[in-house]
Amino acid sequence: MAAARARGRAGTDAQLMGMMRVDVNEVLLPGVGLRYEFVNRDGDRVGIVARRSGDFELMVYTAEDPDEARPVLRFTSEEADTVAEILGAPRIAERFADLTREVPGLSAGQIQIDPGSPYADRVLGDTRARTRTGASIVAVVRGEEVIASPGPAQLLRPGDVLVVVGTREGIAGLQHIVQD
């Protein structure tokens, strides 16, 4: 069920972040789906309706009539996935940083592949990152796209950002290797 799927997605997000940073209110809409509601920093009350069909609807509540939603946008489930990816991409590294804070000795870092890097336009396996430094490359961020758990055959391009998890020394070592 789409509503359940939406709820599941919110749940894993909360786990990934370690905690929900925003207090989200959940209201059941029988036969239709679920409504999520929260107040942003500007004080706008934001509503998101997740329909059973998989569609989403985004709305704001005005101060003049708090009962009435002012419709903003509607998303099909594919569009909603795209929006979630766009909004989520730059924050992936941040979330890993949160995650590693809970494991002593483990840290996360971001390493950019510069155009002059020896590994630009080569595959990830060529860096032999794990063997040489013990650090793991858990994701490659390319613009708005996130390649999670990249394999050794993953091609690296100039401008890519590697999300790395490992010891502080291991990450520094990998940075040295990649940016040398």
Binding site: V27, P30, Y61, E68, A69
Partner: peptide
């Protein structure tokens, strides 16, 4: 586009 309105849960529950 009234699914987000605050009166809607009551209406849908009655249905």
């Amino acid at each position: 586009r009234r699914l987000g309105n605050r009166e809607t849960p009551a209406v849908l529950s009655l249905l």
